[in-house]
Amino acid sequence: MSEAGSGATLLEVRDLSVRFRTRDGVVQAVSNLSYTLRRGETLGIVGESGSGKSVSNLATMGLLNRSYTDITGEILFEGTDVLKLRQEQMRRIRGKDIAMIFQDPFASLHPMYRVGKQLAEAVLAHEDVSRDAAWNRAVELLEAVGIPNARARARDYPHQFSGGMRQRVMIAMALVHNPDVLIADEPTTALDVTVQAQILELIDRVKREFDCGVILITHDLGVVAETASHVLVMYAGRPMEYGPAQEIFTGAQHPYTWGLLESMPTVEKRLEILVPIEGSPPSLLHPPSGCPFHPRCKYRFEPCDGERPPLFRLPDGHLDACYLPPERKRELWTKRIGAELGVT
C-alpha cells in the first residue's frame, strides 16, 4: 500500500460482513470488506446504490439496528473494536470521535427546531457546558462553515435555508467535537451542481483545519477524483478494487471500475461516447456465483462464474478482485479505456 500522505491509522475495517434478516430471506449487504483510514486522508468509497457503501459506514457509526442485522469482522477505531462496544459506550463515540454527514440535507435536520438549537444540542450531547456556551459554539461553527450572518441565522429553522446552506449546517454539526473521523455519505447528491463543488471544497478544507480523516461515500468517481487519497470501489457489497486514487485513475484494474470511468462525463468527453454499464446490479438476496459483476462484464471468461475471485495484490500495492491476467488488463486499458479517457 502506498505510504503517501499517511498519518496515524484512525479506522481499520477488517473482513466486515453485514447481513440483514428480512421476511424474504437474508440480504448479504456487505461481504468481506477491509479498508484503512489514516489521519489527514480522504478515502473515497465508490459504488452504485445498494453496493453496501452506506451500510458499512452505518455499521461504523453503530447506527444499524442489531435486532435484525448480523455483523461479523472488526471495525477498529484507534485500536478498539467498535462492534464489541455496548450501546452507551458507542453513543459516547458517536458524534464526538466519529461524525457523519448524510445525503439529504432537506430531510436530515429536524424541521421543528432552530438550527442553532440543533447544533447546541450536539454540543451538549458530549460536553457539560451551559446552554449559552453551547449556543455560542453553534454560532462559531456556523461561521466556520461559511454561513453569513451566523448569529442571526442560528435562530432560523431549517426550511429557511437553501440545500447547500443546510449541508453546511450538517457539516458544522459534525464538527462540533472536532472528530477524528468524518464520514460523508453522498454529501453532494441532493445538491445543485454549482453548490456541489463548494461543499466538496469545504469538506476538504475542514479535513485540513480539523486534522481528521474523511470517508467520502459517493456513486460518482468525479467527486472522488478531486480530493480522495485512496479509492475503494464496491459492487454488490464486495470490494472490487482498492488503492491510491492516483493509481485508480491512471491504471484501473477492474472491468467494473472501467465501466464507472467510461460512464463518467468530463468536459472533454462528448455525450455520445459515454458508455453505460449494461444491466443492473444483482439482488443481494440471491447474489450470483463467482464474481458478482460477471453477468454484466464485457470481459468475462471461464473462471468468472465459479470461485469468487480473491483480492489480488498488485506490485504497486493496489488490490483488485478480477481474474483477467495483468497483461490483458494492461492491453485493454491502453487500447480502449485509457485512450478514451485521455490517460495512458
Binding site: 457509526m61 447506527l63 450501546q87 453513543r91 459516547r92 463515540i93 458517536r94 458524534g95 464526538k96 461524525a99 457523519m100 448524510f102 439529504d104 430531510a107 436530515s108 435536520l109 429536524h110 424541521p111 444540542e121 450536539a122 450531547a125 458530549h126 450538517m170 454539526m173 462540533v176
Partner: peptide
C-alpha cells in the same frame, strides 16, 4: 424512520432524547 432521527442518533444523543 425519518432521516432527522438518524441525525439525532448520529449526534450521540441518548435513546431517550
Amino acid at each position: 424512520g425519518e432521516d432527522y432521527i438518524r441525525t439525532a442518533r448520529a449526534k450521540g444523543l441518548s435513546e431517550r432524547a
